[in-house]
Design a binder for these strands. Structure first.
Length: 572
RNA sequence: CGGGAUGUGGCGCAGUCUGGUAGCGCGUACGGUUCGGGACCGUAAGGUCGGAGGUUCAAAUCCUCUCAUCCCGACCA
């Protein structure tokens, strides 16, 4: 490609609304432009990279036996009503009506559509295993789109769905996809980690997220320093041995009410009463799809809403607002406590051995000290309900764990029969019995993968594309285009490389050397070949690797061979 | 949905407090000098000051409403 003909508007300045590096660089490198909040246009360079990722995904999907299909973006409400998700999915689901007033949505995911297809077409155990996938745009009306392609409202996703006769076979499909995902992200040149994850609104029994490790990641993950355990913070289990009873030995104190005017937060309470956060019990009120619940955690712990939701087995869970708290506890937020509460109370396991706790009095400006479970209040269930902290131990091997941040680029789920049951997708087995198909679903955020790759591979000058994702492998920079020799040498090399299958960008613009260098660094082509009149006199051209910055003079004669060799080496 | 901020040539911003000729840098076009790390000189084009209403002799500037964007929070694959 000739740079002079390429639609590649690079920016010298950083756009003011671009927060993170990948967003800034994608704007500056002329990959994307914003149309409106969370909606982007992909320019030729950006699209080229997306296609690279898509190609890798398609190759690995096909290798794993998946077949490509394409489903519609627009989906009828009735399918979502049938699965029950029309009501569960929040405002994120973009709903609208057609001219006849019939309700539709723009698909944020495609479990409903694919299950509908399969229940019609897959009738026998002979038709399985079956894995179908598509690469298609999804729409999620995010509350707050941000970080460019990282969290847009419209984004491309590769979603695959597996259908099997039973759990055992489904596990094999899951395994296949899991392996394919590892290969995909390896081929993209990313540093990533597969972590255990919560299943969220998708549902199902078991899932892994593929996380690209990056400081700007929106998700917190914990990884064990010793064994292979890694999990999303939401999912991460607390080591059961963390709370020892002996810490709380001693006689029961009487319960007394103390005045704590305007003292609400854990920090304020501990300071005001001179106690440790570990003596405090926090009472958090949740509203759920069935009944309100009070959750107790120790003062120095944070409640994990995902765990609460799973324990209760409810579809939806939400932190109660001020009014609800006032109504249920009789006090404004900050003074809630377990004593005298009439709603269901569950507690984190760390609360179980606690004695003489400090808690809210359910009365404005009062706390209770010396409260004891059994005497002053009852807890209906103890469970692991809190977030892991950096001082927690690995739940598997007991060794230290690290907290990191990651960008979720892929997610694999075992769905079991959730959707096939809801949409009655059944098949007939060898013995003539009707059974539900067992499903799995597997997503990759395609655009987000590109953003993550840039987040992980850049320096102060611009992007450093992993060679498999680079839009071009080589960029040729003739420095003096009015010099016949220079341009001739550049053109010759360009032709030689192109005809031998290399992806080459020739910067044939009439620009000063500095401009060309800066743009080349910015767009991050792995190999740069500089042709200047001085070195050309010695029959040499300069080759520089974007990744290492190392330059090398090579003979102009046979330069194409040398460069092709370098490309091959980089791509392997 | 709550809190905060910002909307001024294509991009980045000043001007707003204290009302009085709409500015700067970059970019763009043309001419010239330059030419291996975002050159220099000159000339030029380009602005409903987000929108509506109001106050005033006079509004980018003050007031009211509204829209959009961004940040923080809540929420969420």
């Amino acid at each position: 490609m000739r740079y002079s003909r390429l639609f590649l508007p690079t920016l010298r300045q950083v756009p003011s609304d671009a927060e993170i590096v990948s967003h800034q660089l994608m704007m500056r490198a002329g990959m994307i432009r914003k149309l409106t909040s969370g909606i982007y246009i992909h320019l030729p360079l950006g699209l080229c990279i997306i296609k690279k990722v898509e190609t890798i995904i398609r190759e690995e999907m096909e290798k794993a036996g998946a077949q490509e299909i394409l489903m519609p973006a627009m989906q009828p409400a009735e399918l979502w009503q049938e699965s029950g998700r029309w009501d569960i999915y929040g405002k994120e689901l973009l709903r609208f009506k057609d001219r006849h007033g019939r309700p539709y949505c723009l698909g944020p995911t495609h479990e409903e559509v694919i299950t509908d297809l399969v229940r019609r077409e897959v009738r026998s155990y002979r038709d399985m295993p079956l894995i179908l996938y598509q690469i298609q745009n999804k729409f999620r009306d995010e509350i707050r789109p941000r970080f460019g392609l990282m969290r847009g409202r419209e984004f491309a996703m590769k979603d695959a769905y597996s259908f099997d006769v039973d759990e055992e076979a489904a596990a094999k499909s899951y395994e296949k996809m899991f392996d394919a995902y590892n290969r995909i992200f390896e081929r993209c040149g990313l540093k990533f980690r597969a972590v255990e994850a919560d299943t969220g609104t998708i549902g199902g029994s078991f899932s892994h997220e593929f996380m690209v490790v990056a400081e700007t990641g929106e998700d917190a993950i914990v990884t064990c320093t010793k064994c292979g355990y890694a999990a999303n913070l939401e999912k991460a289990e607390v080591h059961p041995g963390y709370a020892r009873k002996e810490e709380y030995d001693g006689p029961d104190a009487p319960m007394t009410k103390v005045s704590t005017p305007n003292v609400r937060t854990v920090e304020e309470v501990t300071q005001f009463l001179s106690v440790h956060p570990g003596q405090l019990v926090k009472t958090i009120i949740f509203e759920t799809s069935s009944e309100p619940v009070a959750v107790l955690v120790r003062g120095d712990h944070e409640v994990n809403a995902a765990k609460v939701k799973n324990i209760l087995g409810v579809d939806n869970i939400e932190l109660a607002d001020e009014d609800t708290v006032l109504k249920l506890t009789g006090a404004p937020a900050g003074f809630a406590g377990p004593v005298g509460l009439s709603i269901k109370i569950i507690a984190d396991r760390a609360v179980e051995p606690m004695k003489n706790m400090v808690a809210g009095a359910n009365e404005r400006d009062f706390h209770l000290v010396g409260t004891n479970r059994g005497r002053d209040f009852e807890v209906s269930e103890f469970a692991d309900l809190r977030l892991v902290t950096s001082s927690d131990r690995c739940p598997r091997c007991g060794m230290a764990m690290e907290l990191k941040r990651g960008i979720e680029v892929g997610h694999v789920f075992r769905l079991g029969d959730k959707y096939s049951k809801a949409l009655s997708s059944v098949y007939v087995d060898q013995d003539g019995n009707e059974r539900y198909t067992i499903m799995g679903c597997y997503g990759i955020g395609v655009w987000r993968t590109v953003a993550a790759a840039i987040e992980q591979n850049h320096d102060k000058d611009g992007i450093i594309f992993p060679p498999p994702l680079a839009p071009y492998q080589v960029e040729i920079l003739p420095l003096q285009i009015q010099e016949g020799d220079v341009i001739a040498a550049a053109e010759t090399l360009y032709d030689q490389l192109s005809t031998q299958g290399a992806e080459v960008l020739l910067d044939d613009r009439d620009e000063r050397a500095g401009v060309k260098f800066k743009d080349a660094d910015l767009i991050g082509i792995p190999i740069r070949v500089t042709i200047g009149k001085k070195s050309l006199k010695n029959g040499e051209v300069e080759v520089r690797l974007r990744s290492t910055g190392r330059t090398e003079m090579i003979q102009r004669e046979g330069a194409d061979r040398v460069i092709l060799d370098m490309i091959r080496k980089q791509l392997s």
